[in-house]
Amino acid sequence: MSIRHGLLALLVAGPRYGSRLRADFEARTGGTWPLNIGQVYTTLGRLERDGMVAQDDVDAAGRTLYALTDAGRAELRAWYDHPVQRTGPPRDELAIKLVMALGTDGVDVREVVETQRRHVTRALHEHVRQRAEALAGVPEHPERMARLLVLEQLVFHAEAEVRWLDHCEARLLRFVHEEEEPPARKQPEV
């Protein structure tokens, strides 16, 4: 998720200080994407430099409040209006691990697949449990609905990874089977 755009979206509700933005971001995303406070202030600095936010005031505790500018509102509107681009394949550590394991002596790629499957299956069960808890209460508040949507995304991603691992395992078994079979001898022509 774009931290930049997430902070702009939170500022629509009014001026906020950095640690409040961090807390609101984590609450809105159901704690799925924790932010480092340094990320928040670095991003706010860049947004201010780019004219998207401006220092608005200081609260009673002496914290600097940041407000959305017209340029920030326009940037946020453009973000909402355009689809998220899925350009180029992402660098997925698991895919890299599997393709590297294929050419490495002493590594059983099927065991790498199985280890990952066990891990993602446990994560899937936890996401499903959390989703059931979220569904137990009526998600009438935007933060509850946001958490539910994030949990459902996690469930779907985990399910997709399990399916992909099943596919990898099947492909690897065919590959190993083909490697073990002796080449077919050419039959003499009659």
Rank of each mutant, 00 (worst) to 15 (best):
residue 41 Y to F: 07
residue 171 R to V: 13
residue 167 H to Q: 06
residue 61 A to S: 04
residue 85 Q to L: 15
residue 157 H to P: 03
residue 32 T to S: 12
residue 167 H to G: 05
residue 38 G to I: 09
residue 54 A to I: 07
residue 146 A to N: 15
residue 112 V to K: 00
residue 134 A to E: 04
residue 29 T to S: 15
residue 133 E to C: 02
residue 24 D to L: 09
residue 169 E to A: 13
residue 32 T to M: 14
residue 157 H to Q: 12
residue 80 Y to F: 15
residue 164 W to V: 11
residue 72 G to W: 04
residue 109 V to L: 06
residue 65 L to T: 00
residue 36 N to D: 14
residue 44 L to Y: 00
residue 156 F to I: 11
residue 108 D to K: 11
residue 19 S to E: 04
residue 23 A to D: 12
residue 62 G to M: 01
residue 163 R to H: 07
residue 166 D to P: 04
residue 121 T to D: 13
residue 14 G to D: 11
residue 77 R to P: 02
residue 64 T to H: 02
residue 125 H to P: 07
residue 172 L to G: 02
residue 118 R to S: 09
residue 161 E to H: 06
residue 106 G to L: 13
residue 20 R to K: 10
residue 51 G to F: 05
residue 68 L to T: 05
residue 128 V to C: 05
residue 72 G to P: 09
residue 164 W to N: 12
residue 181 E to P: 00
residue 176 V to D: 08
residue 114 E to Y: 03
residue 130 Q to M: 06
residue 12 V to W: 00
residue 120 V to N: 08
residue 53 V to D: 07
residue 145 M to F: 11
residue 10 L to G: 07
residue 183 P to Y: 01
residue 134 A to P: 03
residue 138 V to C: 05
residue 64 T to R: 09
residue 84 V to D: 12
residue 92 D to I: 15
residue 15 P to V: 02
residue 18 G to T: 00
residue 50 D to G: 06
residue 37 I to W: 03
residue 52 M to I: 10
residue 146 A to I: 06
residue 65 L to C: 02
residue 32 T to Y: 14
residue 181 E to F: 00
residue 180 E to F: 01
residue 89 P to V: 14
residue 130 Q to W: 01
residue 55 Q to V: 14
residue 36 N to V: 14
residue 96 I to S: 14
residue 33 W to K: 13
residue 52 M to G: 06
residue 189 E to T: 08
residue 76 L to I: 07
residue 168 C to E: 11
residue 76 L to S: 10
residue 120 V to D: 12
residue 149 L to Y: 12
residue 16 R to G: 00
residue 6 G to M: 15
residue 66 Y to V: 03
residue 31 G to D: 04
residue 11 L to H: 00
residue 16 R to W: 04
residue 18 G to V: 00
residue 188 P to V: 00
residue 38 G to A: 08
residue 49 R to A: 12
residue 125 H to A: 09
residue 57 D to G: 03
residue 149 L to T: 06
residue 37 I to D: 05
residue 100 M to I: 02
residue 163 R to T: 13
residue 30 G to E: 05
residue 28 R to P: 04
residue 6 G to T: 13
residue 115 T to P: 08
residue 180 E to K: 04
residue 79 W to S: 09
residue 167 H to C: 03
residue 108 D to S: 09
residue 11 L to K: 06
residue 105 D to S: 14
residue 13 A to S: 09
residue 137 G to T: 02
residue 86 R to V: 11
residue 179 E to Y: 05
residue 170 A to W: 02
residue 169 E to M: 05
residue 179 E to W: 05
residue 84 V to S: 12
residue 50 D to K: 04
residue 153 Q to F: 13
residue 83 P to F: 11
residue 73 R to T: 10
residue 164 W to S: 08
residue 104 T to G: 08
residue 55 Q to R: 06
residue 161 E to F: 14
residue 1 M to G: 15
residue 51 G to Y: 07
residue 57 D to T: 01
residue 50 D to E: 12
residue 184 A to I: 09
residue 41 Y to H: 05
residue 50 D to I: 11
residue 43 T to E: 09
residue 122 R to Y: 14
residue 145 M to Q: 14
residue 90 P to N: 10
residue 68 L to H: 07
